[in-house]
């Protein structure tokens, strides 16, 4: 009897578990499915309202509209460029800053850390920062999207702590074999820190992909806008009320919801594609067994 009881409660537990997890994953996934399916549906179907998970009438017209001008394609190109180069700069600068700070031998590292931590609490504010960027001659260049955000203080601190956990023994061994500090960082510490690098790389990459505010502030030339700025414009545009004050009344003012959703899909898919490639790094425990006690 007790035996039975246990399996019963086990089953109950599993059942509730599955039900709950299914519910939660549905809550997360349904908006995505909705967006994708609306983007493929015909406008007249969407107008009728309701939750549309599978369009009855499959059409690519929304995507045709988006790609009818070069704007979206171009902005995706800009975003890919800024994301790829920007993330490399981020990882490079963050790791070569974090590593020395993680070594107990660096003198004055407490003061340095303090100065870095202060920037997490206080920022210069929008206009002073703009002046700095402007006097560096970065206005209206892609660099203005990469340089000011080159190091995130938070990521730096976490990465520093991660480096501190790399066993000293490994470093001593490398030094014994004639490796200098830079060699230790690039040959020993970084390869061992791939999970951390993958994580921060992803943080930074998503940050660059989503860059909106900096782009609007620092980039004046509409040809150089990244995808989020264009996306925002499209989404806002189609939210326009017909004949509201921004436009004079006009029959075709109203972009159908399908186009709105299709642009969201187009702007989201590239960055989502990055995740699977980084997946393997998250699972690996590289440090296991590297030092024998």
């Amino acid at each position: 009897m007790p035996m039975n009881d246990k399996t019963f409660s086990n089953k109950m537990f599993d059942g509730v578990n599955y039900a709950l997890l299914t519910l939660i994953s549905l809550i997360t996934i349904i908006p995505f499915i909705y967006i994708v399916s609306v983007s493929f549906a015909s406008p007249s179907e969407v107008v009728k309202g309701g939750l549309l998970l599978v369009p009855t009438e499959f059409t690519l017209s929304a995507y045709k509209y988006i790609f009818s001008t070069g704007t979206m394609v171009k902005s995706i190109g800009v975003s890919i460029y800024v994301t790829a180069l920007g993330t490399m700069i981020n990882l490079m600068l963050t790791s070569i800053t974090a590593y020395p700070l993680a070594r107990p031998t660096l003198r004055g590292r407490r003061t340095l850390m303090l100065m870095i931590l202060i920037t997490m609490l206080f920022s210069g504010g929008m206009i002073p920062t703009y002046f700095v960027v402007k006097s560096l001659g970065l206005i209206n260049t892609y660099w203005s999207l990469m340089i000011p955000t080159a190091i995130s203080a938070f990521n730096l601190v976490v990465l520093k702590n991660f480096f501190q956990q790399v066993p000293d023994g490994l470093e001593d061994a490398a030094r014994m074999d004639g490796c200098n500090d830079i060699g230790i960082l690039f040959r020993i510490v970084l390869p061992l820190s791939m999970p951390a690098m993958a994580t921060f790389g992803l943080f930074y990459a998503v940050g660059h992909w989503n860059t909106f505010f900096n782009a609007v502030i620092y980039i004046n030339d509409s040809d150089k806008w990244p995808v989020q700025v264009v996306l925002r414009q499209i989404v806002l545009l189609s939210q326009d009320r017909i004949g509201d004050s921004t436009s004079q009344s006009d029959p075709a003012d109203y972009l159908p919801q399908t186009i709105r959703m299709a642009s969201i899909v187009v702007a989201t898919v590239p960055i989502v594609l990055v995740y699977p490639f980084l997946q393997k790094h998250f699972a690996k425990g590289v440090l296991l067994g590297s030092v024998k006690g």
Binding site: I127, Y130, K134, V216, I217, W225, V229
Partner: peptide, 19 residues
Amino acid sequence: IQWIPDAAFEDKKNIMIAS
């Protein structure tokens, strides 16, 4: 003509005035 995205127009305006 410099086109400024609507969403950040006020911030941009303040920056342009300030600078």
